Computed example of a mutant assay.
Amino acid sequence: MQVQIKVGVVLFLVGAAGCVTSGKYEKKAKESAANETRAKACEEQVAALTASNESLQRDLTAATQAHQELKVQAAAAEAKSAQYEQLAGSLQRQIRAGQIEISELRGKMIVKLKDKILFSSGSAKLSEEGRAALGVVADVFKDMKGKNVVVAGFTDDIPVASGQYRDNWELSTARAVAVVRYLTSRGVPPHMLGAAGFSEFRPIVANDTPANRSQNRRIEIALTPADYEAPVVEPR
């Protein structure tokens, strides 16, 4: 009887020990799983924060570049305005007389000259009055850097009657070239200059009255950012 009791006690103790060990294992396993879950969540948070930081860095870089571009544009706008004021101040007399108009829009400055101040009818020879006005323009343009100066000639729709020019294409182009050559003679670098003739095909008003035809007969000098840089030639 006593032996049976002892055996039962031993078996009970062994079973109890086994239950305790199994319980601790399950508890540790649950803790380990919970730790892994937390670790995974932390990794995901770190990855999300890293991605967010990279996005913020990109945004900051883009914002910095945009700020720098705005500063450059503001400086360029200020410079253009200074050039506009300089030219407008120098040509006050011609502007008041209605012989010259100056405008500035979207980075382009345009000097518009009536043909009667520059040329006689059907001619591409500059008048003395025209040379005087273009001399003032040249004095402003010749020291500018990083600019194009494109001279364009325009006529009305009346055909060329006679003379050395066959039609308004030739006349408008010859007048533009005459202005370019004069600007060059007054010190404007040739690589800045270009000439174009548009004949009668770009009127600013209808060619239906003498006054309107007079507006369409014009020379326009456009000042724009340069798209060409003259190569440096080493002296021999």
Rank of each mutant, 00 (worst) to 15 (best):
residue 216 N to Y: 05
residue 105 L to P: 07
residue 215 Q to I: 04
residue 131 R to M: 07
residue 76 A to G: 04
residue 11 L to E: 08
residue 216 N to F: 02
residue 102 I to M: 09
residue 152 A to F: 14
residue 178 A to K: 03
residue 236 R to Y: 13
residue 228 Y to G: 14
residue 221 I to W: 03
residue 128 E to T: 04
residue 50 T to I: 01
residue 231 P to L: 07
residue 213 R to Q: 14
residue 74 A to Q: 11
residue 124 A to N: 03
residue 203 P to E: 10
residue 91 L to M: 09
residue 207 N to D: 11
residue 140 V to G: 06
residue 32 S to C: 01
residue 233 V to S: 04
residue 30 K to E: 04
residue 106 R to H: 15
residue 229 E to W: 14
residue 126 L to C: 02
residue 182 Y to D: 06
residue 194 G to V: 03
residue 122 G to C: 11
residue 190 P to N: 13
residue 184 T to C: 10
residue 148 N to Y: 09
residue 154 F to I: 10
residue 48 A to M: 05
residue 41 A to R: 06
residue 56 L to Q: 14
residue 154 F to E: 04
residue 46 V to L: 11
residue 195 A to R: 01
residue 158 I to L: 14
residue 124 A to V: 01
residue 208 D to T: 10
residue 211 A to C: 08
residue 64 T to F: 12
residue 17 A to H: 10
residue 98 G to M: 00
residue 89 G to K: 09
residue 235 P to L: 04
residue 201 F to T: 09
residue 129 E to C: 05
residue 177 V to D: 05
residue 161 A to H: 13
residue 112 K to S: 15
residue 154 F to A: 04
residue 102 I to C: 06
residue 124 A to G: 07
residue 34 A to P: 03
residue 74 A to V: 01
residue 154 F to Y: 14
residue 88 A to Q: 08
residue 38 R to V: 13
residue 62 A to S: 15
residue 25 Y to L: 15
residue 60 L to S: 14
residue 231 P to S: 13
residue 182 Y to A: 06
residue 167 D to I: 00
residue 107 G to I: 01
residue 210 P to F: 06
residue 94 Q to R: 02
residue 86 Q to I: 01
residue 79 A to E: 03
residue 17 A to M: 15
residue 210 P to N: 05
residue 86 Q to D: 05
residue 222 A to G: 10
residue 174 A to V: 01
residue 80 K to V: 01
residue 11 L to Y: 12
residue 229 E to D: 15
residue 152 A to W: 05
residue 232 V to Q: 14
residue 130 G to W: 00
residue 102 I to L: 11
residue 99 Q to D: 10
residue 139 D to K: 07
residue 108 K to P: 10
residue 90 S to F: 07
residue 196 A to W: 06
residue 18 G to A: 13
residue 189 P to Q: 02
residue 3 V to D: 11
residue 178 A to R: 02
residue 146 G to F: 09
residue 227 D to T: 12
residue 141 F to C: 12
residue 85 E to C: 09
residue 168 N to F: 04
residue 98 G to A: 06
residue 91 L to K: 01
residue 119 F to K: 02
residue 45 Q to I: 00
residue 181 R to N: 15
residue 38 R to G: 12
residue 124 A to T: 02
residue 91 L to A: 09
residue 171 L to W: 03
residue 22 S to Q: 12
residue 56 L to F: 13
residue 220 E to P: 00
residue 35 N to K: 15
residue 61 T to L: 12
residue 213 R to E: 11
residue 98 G to Q: 03
residue 58 R to D: 13
residue 188 V to C: 06
residue 202 R to N: 14
residue 75 A to E: 07
residue 122 G to A: 15
residue 154 F to L: 09
residue 61 T to Y: 13
residue 181 R to F: 03
residue 20 V to P: 08
residue 180 V to S: 02
residue 155 T to Q: 15
residue 190 P to W: 10
residue 148 N to W: 04
residue 212 N to K: 15
residue 233 V to K: 12
